[in-house]
Design a protein around this nucleic acid. Structure first.
Lengths: 348, 348
DNA sequence: GTATACTGGTAACACGCGTTACCCAACGAC
DNA sequence: GTCGTTGGGTAACGCGTGTTACCAGTATAC
């Protein structure tokens, strides 16, 4: 089709009657370059007149920098759950990147792909750094990258490796949720984790639960705790298991909204009233939390902020070799809706 | 930090004791190049031994092709609604792109950005083509791009411009939803649109509603139709308005799940039983549709397929100058859950 | 035996830009 | 007058690859 032709630096140089070098120096605002004010002006005007845009490929080749970061998005068994975070995260990443003049590559990694197949991005020099979301803990190539000094930032946390990361403060978020239930007068508060405890976030949210109990001088009772597994079904099963206890909890903290959806459905089917007979608080604040009846009280995760922080940290590492704070933790916010019974309590 | 050094083609050439040209010819599998089998083997082994990866920037500069496509994601007033599509769409795009050896750039456009600010991607030669999602109808730069012959594919449709596009078959999808309600015995079926009718998709879904009625010999009654506006609130207001009629509809087709969420909430608050007193069918199949009570019967939109098709079409245009089918329409699927009352009907 | 083709490979140019080393003129110091 | 020195600008190299034009040698046709 139409062979498009582009304006090059050389043409700008001719238009401004200077050398190509001068054009480059002016347009890149090189600090030590001594260029007369009038010449500088001529160049700028010529560039504007010709509608000049530098060629990204040439620039990358010459400078050795791509000015691009990539989001590597692992599709794990929990991907339905994590999809809820993608729009906000990506928006945050993109806006931060744009602010610093970077482009954003998106690279999903499917479940059946070999470990570390995203390395082609690095080896092919497509990007200056990676944001890894949902990495496998057995990712040895990740450690290799780290050893090479290639800029990497993790979204979410991983046991036992010291790689710059960005995450929410799971412990405090969970503690706030449980504290809220305790403040409403509940003494028997159960918990359903978001996932098996091998996942770092699960352990942290459980830890938050324990701390809140401890702060209220309530002993930790492991018979009130069940494990969720990302999806609705696991929540359904877990809450059923809790409710057949001799002394079932009067409130349950479910460390994942997706899991909570299953729990609420189970309670609904059993004819149990929420929050009347059981109060429920979730975690994540997925879109559906607003829409379900009763609307789910939950811990909001700032997805945009996570993305923004991850990108900012990564770019800092790319440009300066290391970040100021290499482990960023963002705060959460408890969103009080109906499922916890706070409304009713206020009316008392 | 550690100055990483990369293996270049020249080093492979030395290792294999051939010229750099030969290496290039072999690795790119140039058809007309006559290279002996033994030499070819030496080159391949050398490349493998040295773990050679071609430099993307150099390749782009030399070839003039970026092997990259970009998704331009407009954040319009309906962005909360459209976020539900992003994960699937992006996954589809990325997988198709990967299959053809392309990278994917993500570029959100915020509401306050000047019109056509995504042009820098094109001018800077960052990408070979664009997928535009949610473009403004007043986007004159889009037409300019089209005139230049730059590869563009639209996600969703736009009035009055003939640009390659990918979308679901809104008319048939809506018709299927309404037909389903009619088949369940309803004669007074109302509709709430997903958005004002200036949006092309809205008009199409309304058209589907009319066709289904016509096929059942039921006259179109505009008093049973209300306009939604992407969000929950608009659905809340619209259904309230319908229910105060002298003869309110016994079933309502809401052309957007997000809007339907508001409608269901309103009905719930009014103590009306769904599907007992009013049956409801939505459109889009967002995640929340599964979780709400009653679970929402709705028209599933194949987001992955839309993404895949868009990328495939775009790449075809990039490489061959034009696509086989320049307007792709994908089918939808009616997901029958609880809100339509099909379960009860079957039990009759 | 000579013209012709084919096989196997290479030298050299182009891609557009960042950057270094260098040059020239003017100017001040001594 | 000579010697720095400074301001203003340029020639030339390098980045790593794709691609074309060309060359040497050997087989084939007649």
């Amino acid at each position: 089709m139409s062979t498009r032709s582009y304006v090059t630096q050389r043409q700008v140089a001719e238009e401004a009657r200077v050398s190509r070098t001068t054009v480059s120096l002016v347009l890149n605002q090189v600090p030590d370059a001594s260029i007369g004010a009038e010449t500088r002006q001529r160049v700028l005007e010529a560039a504007r007149r010709l509608d000049y845009y530098p060629d990204a490929a040439a620039r990358r080749l010459a400078s050795g920098k791509t000015r691009t970061i990539a989001l590597v998005w692992h599709r794990a068994p929990d991907h339905t759950y994590r999809d809820a975070f993608l729009p906000g995260l990506l928006d945050g990443i993109s806006r931060a990147a744009r602010r610093y003049g970077y482009q954003v590559l998106f690279r999903p990694v499917e479940v059946d792909e070999p470990n570390g197949s995203y390395m082609e991005l690095v080896r092919g020099r497509h990007t200056d750094g990676l944001i890894l979301s949902g990495p496998r803990s057995d990712d040895d190539l990740l450690l290799a990258l780290r050893a090479e000094g290639f800029p990497v930032v993790l979204h979410g946390c991983l046991h036992g490796v010291d790689i710059p990361s960005v995450d929410v403060d799971n412990v405090r978020g969970a503690a706030a949720a449980v504290h809220h239930l305790l403040a409403l007068g509940h003494r028997r508060v159960g918990m359903i984790t978001n996932a098996p405890l091998v996942y770092a976030a699960s352990g942290q949210r459980l830890e938050g639960y324990r701390r809140a109990l401890q702060a209220a001088d309530i002993p930790y009772d492991e018979t009130l705790v069940r494990e969720g597994n990302f999806d609705e079904e696991s929540g359904y099963a877990a809450i059923m298991d809790l409710m057949v206890l001799d002394h079932p909890p009067t409130a349950v903290f479910v460390a994942s909204d997706m899991v909570a959806m299953g729990a609420l459905r189970a309670l609904h089917e059993e004819g149990m009233c929420v929050p009347g007979e059981v109060a429920v608080v979730g975690f994540d604040d997925i879109t559906a939390a607003r829409f379900i009846t009763p609307a789910l009280t939950t811990v909001h995760v700032p997805t945009f902020g996570l993305g923004w922080s991850a990108a900012e940290l990564l770019i800092e590492i790319v440009e300066q070799g290391s970040g100021e704070h290499s482990h960023v933790q963002l705060g959460t916010e408890l969103i009080v809706r109906e499922s916890c019974g706070a409304d009713a309590a206020q009316n008392d």
